[in-house]
Simulated assay, not measured.
Amino acid sequence: MHPDARIYVAGHGGLVGSAIVRRLQAAGFTNLITRRSRDLDLRDQAAVQAFFQQERPEYVFLAAAKVGGILANSTYPAEFLYDNLMIAANVIHAAHLSGVTKLLNLGSTCIYPREAPQPLREDALLTGPLEETNRAYAIAKIAAIELCDQYRAQYGCDFISAMPTNLYGPGDNFDLLGSHVLPALIRKMVDAQEAGQPTVQVWGSGTPRREFLHVDDLADACLFLMERVSEPGPINVGTGEDLSIRELAERVRAAVGYTGELVFDPSKPDGTPRKVTDVSRIHALGWHHQIGLEEGLRHTVDWYLAHRGHVRGEAAAVSSPA
């Protein structure tokens, strides 16, 4: 991409989109196009097509999505399916109609079957049943990959798809009713430490294993893929390293400085038993992550302490529990 390329970052206010904006700005790209959801509803096909015709972006990072943890996915599966299908269909189709040079579609490793061999390889896609707790979201993300591939096959569009593992970092959602496990643990332990609470409850048995990637590493991978890779199908982005939820909780406790006890609740769902990505493909292309989990946790805890009250989840948790 040339330095003054017109680059649209869809979802720039979210965890991933804001990290991509930071990375692009650091690399010297200044002609960035953004819209808040209140100004452009990506579920509205006519509005999206009008936006693309007006702004004529050359490159698109599709980071907009409705996201959440097990509770949110289980409570609102229809919205997770519909919203994400509409966002992907509208943006990808408008990118084709307006002649976008290249588009990077971002998904999630939840697209892979629940019982797929570990580590998760890209060729495991569509080889078995999905994890029930996030099936609706996963189907929408699979559809987005297929859209990119079919526009490539039929029209020659340079549309690619990246599948990051579990993400965390600055700008995350700390709402206990909608967040993923890592930011939820940070918030719970910060709150408990300050309130002098002797215990913190952790959902599930603590035995599932997960992989975590700092969002700034993902943003770096996105720029790498946009500039250097043109291939169909998903490309995994992760660390290739996992740990149990119990081990994660212990590391968060250390990063926060919480001195109480962790109580695991096995009556709550665990989700997929293990999810770690095979990152040999992106490694072979020349990209590796740089931020270790311990460093990333310290960074994220510090960011949360400095920004709480102004981050997603704080006001919502108080004023709108639903």
Score class of each variant (00 low, 15 high):
His2Ser: 14
His2Tyr: 15
Ala5Gly: 06
Arg6His: 12
Tyr8Lys: 03
Tyr8Met: 13
His12Val: 09
Gly14Pro: 15
Gly14Lys: 13
Val16Met: 10
Ile20Gln: 10
Arg22Val: 01
Gln25Lys: 12
Gln25Glu: 15
Ala27Pro: 11
Phe29Arg: 05
Thr34Trp: 08
Ser37Gly: 04
Ser37His: 01
Leu42Thr: 08
Ala46Glu: 06
Gln49Asn: 09
Ala50Glu: 10
Phe52Pro: 01
Gln53Arg: 15
Val60Glu: 10
Ala65Gln: 04
Ala65Lys: 02
Gly68Ser: 08
Gly69Val: 03
Ile70Gly: 01
Leu71Cys: 01
Leu71Val: 03
Asn73Met: 09
Ser74Gln: 14
Thr75Val: 14
Thr75Gly: 00
Tyr76Ala: 14
Tyr82His: 03
Tyr82Thr: 06
Ala88Gln: 13
Ala88Glu: 13
Asn90Glu: 03
Ala94Pro: 13
His96Ile: 05
Leu97Ala: 14
Val100Ser: 12
Pro113Thr: 05
Ala116Leu: 06
Arg121Gly: 15
Asp123Gln: 15
Ala124His: 12
Leu126Phe: 04
Thr127Pro: 11
Glu131Met: 07
Arg135Asp: 01
Arg135Phe: 10
Arg135Pro: 06
Ala136Cys: 02
Ala144Phe: 10
Ile145Asp: 04
Glu146Asp: 04
Asp149His: 01
Ala153Thr: 09
Cys157Ala: 09
Cys157Val: 11
Ile160Arg: 11
Ala162Pro: 01
Ala162Asn: 00
Thr165Gly: 02
Leu167Ile: 03
Gly171Leu: 03
Phe174Asn: 03
Val181Glu: 04
Leu182Asp: 09
Leu182Trp: 07
Pro183Lys: 11
Met189Val: 00
Gln193Lys: 08
Gln201Pro: 04
Phe212Lys: 08
Ala219Arg: 03
Ala221Thr: 05
Leu225Thr: 06
Glu227Ala: 10
Arg228Trp: 02
Ser230Pro: 12
Glu231Gly: 01
Pro232Leu: 00
Pro232Val: 07
Pro234His: 07
Gly238Arg: 03
Asp242Phe: 06
Leu243Arg: 06
Ser244Pro: 00
Glu247Thr: 14
Val252Asn: 05
Ala254Gln: 15
Gly257Cys: 12
Leu262His: 08
Val263Cys: 02
Pro266Tyr: 00
Pro266Ala: 05
Pro266Trp: 07
Pro266Asp: 08
Ser267Leu: 05
Ser267Arg: 02
Lys268Ser: 15
Pro273Glu: 00
Asp278Ile: 11
Ala284Phe: 08
Leu285Val: 07
His288Ala: 02
Glu295Asp: 15
Arg298His: 15
Thr300Glu: 05
Val301Gly: 13
Asp302Arg: 10
His307Gln: 07
Arg312Glu: 14
Gly313Val: 15
Ala315Asn: 08
Ala316Glu: 15
Ala316Pro: 06
Val318Thr: 13
